[in-house]
Design a protein around this nucleic acid. Sequence first.
DNA 1: ATGCCTTAACGTTTAAGA
Length: 259
Amino acid sequence: MRIATWNVNSVSARLPRLSAWLESARPDVVCLQELKCSAEAFPAEEISALGYESLVNGDGRWNGVAVLSRVGLSDTVLGLPEGPLFDGGDESRAAAATCGGVRVWSVYVPNGREVGHPHYAYKLEWLEALRRTAQKEAPGPMPYAILGDYNIAPTDDDVYDRSAFEGSTHVTEPERAALKALRDVGLTDVLPRPLKYDHPFTYWDYRQLCFPKNRGMRIDLVYGNAPFSAAVRDAYVDREERKGKGASDHAPVVVDLEL
DNA sequence: ATGCCTTAACGTTTAAGA
């Protein structure tokens, strides 16, 4: 089984590239983030024409996640159980489904904006709610994984230059501690291989030639339980999708499993 | 071999992204 996660930065703007990629990579299951559209506006027909069912959690202008599957889509959940609100709103940041015998979550962890900003506290609360959910769900024999845009670089090796992130979100100790707490419920970071250069970065800012200069970050992660991790045969970052006109600022992370 | 930011929205700019 091939399973992938990709922050598409608007599913509407990315539809041509997403469609072409689904046809060429032929993943069985895809977790999408940053749909930037409502559930009603999601291009389910175009996706369906390629053989995929869609589970969509979308609230409009920002956020939004989906699970696409061509191996079944059942026991669906929309939203993070007992997740925090931000500014009184319930943002669309999580969706879960069982696809072909694998339980998956597609998550878009809050950005945090600035250290000390209310969104940063919300980010940490959101991660704690995710940890509580994973603590209940990860144990057991079924392969289980939380895939998505975590908006955290787990280690200093996961950013192109640690000094460029002094005082920034995404690299702080509390964020990394929240990730470790999540792993401690029994999840392993499935490290993808890069197709070029030394670090499997998954995100490069659109500005200042960051992609050509490989000024990237690894913030799109796959956290799998023991049965999931044991089934991994390969994992890689498809940097080809970051190239050219009409690219997202994130590349897909692709995981091949032998179940 | 990659190209100097992109997206959606009550738009003539703003907020958000990370």
